[in-house]
Design a protein around this nucleic acid. Structure first.
Lengths: 194, 194
DNA sequence: TTAATTTTGTACTATTTGGTCAAATATTGG
DNA sequence: CCAATATTTGACCAAATAGTACAAAATTAA
């Protein structure tokens, strides 16, 4: 196949774009911000990704793919799903970078920004969050079978509860101390214990 | 004092502006959108409110004032604070207009949009949400005294828990059915019962 | 009446927005 | 080397943005 080679790495560029969309949101992120972060030219961007919106969809999909793997890995690393949940919520209570508190959850942010504005993007974010709920459900069911999770509440409802907790913490992390967030997690996890 | 009187009612105009900011967010709401909704001219707006940002601050303050009154009234209408909380969360599970689901909570939206972008506005929203937490705290304490709320957890933590629940539901309402939302509320309220 | 004040509407600025395009550059197969 | 193909580059564009300016009409209190 003839033609000049791509000089930049798509993955690297998408990763940089993720950071910009994540911290600023879709609308507030300008093409200039994005191109500077991605370190490519306008032409390259439009040639490769199509449009700002298309780029966002790519970023969203890629983000979710990694999040999915990460979540599953964390659940698989523990015998007890409660420990998996704790590990997952450590991203909230003890983020790698304290600046992550302001960023919140990318999917939650997107659902919040797009709902009522761009229903298509909102639905993408919503469906991904529902997939997250699905992961919770899978490991909760396993936990119920092993007697690690209470049998009295339905796993379906408990999964929704965990997602609601995640949604809430995505906002609450912008207002509470680490200690308060940790207490909050531990308090709510009581609802899952047998 | 001489001079022509204002033709429009500031309260009415602010109410219209609230709707626009609430559904679209601060950034996405254009002056054109706002002026059309408020039904006044550019000159009148800038003369009365100063700037888009100043208008937003007025809208935010006014919104919170009403929310505060509303919450307090709901708590006061019931002997048991648990019923007060249920009534407050009916705004989420059974909103007056189903379109309110897409709108979420104005304060939560603002904290989400502004955190990391405009720290001053973010702090305004955050402080108002912390005031909401304060209201929860007041009535939880009363409930503890009356044996309606469990004594084992600290009222401070339970208040934070309620706010976290609110934050979460402000997102979750954009993805779940009424029935699921109601089950979610009732499940989580278990944590407050004695 | 006069001075003060608001409303209305239009025109304007200056900046930023997402997006386009053509020319230059690099790569490959024939 | 040549022709075809693909990417890079930066200039360019039309639309929208918040905000300003202003003049003329309207209303009011003193």
């Amino acid at each position: 196949m003839a033609g000049r080679h791509k000089e930049f790495d798509e993955e690297t560029a998408l990763s940089a774009a993720t950071e910009v969309f994540w911290t600023q949101g879709y609308d507030a992120a300008s093409m200039e911000d994005l191109l500077t972060a991605m370190n490519i030219n306008k032409g390259s961007m439009y040639n490769t990704f199509g449009s700002k919106r298309d780029l966002f969809v790519r970023v969203l999909d890629r983000f979710f793919k990694y999040a999915q793997h990460d979540m599953t890995a964390k659940f698989e690393a523990f015998d007890n799903p409660l420990d998996g949940v704790r590990e997952i919520f450590r991203q909230v209570t003890r983020p790698a970078d304290p600046k992550d508190h302001a960023k919140g959850c990318f999917l939650v942010n997107t659902l919040g920004e797009m709902c009522g504005m761009d229903e298509e993007l909102a639905t993408m974010a919503r469906n991904k969050l529902l997939d997250v709920e699905g992961i919770y459900l899978k490991y909760l069911r396993k936990g119920v079978k092993n007697g690690q999770i209470r049998k009295e509440a339905s796993p379906e409802l408990m999964a929704k509860f965990l997602l609601n907790m995640w949604n809430g913490m995505s906002i609450s992390r912008r207002m509470y101390s680490r200690k308060a967030l940790e207490e909050l997690v531990e308090m709510q996890l009581q609802l899952l214990k047998p």
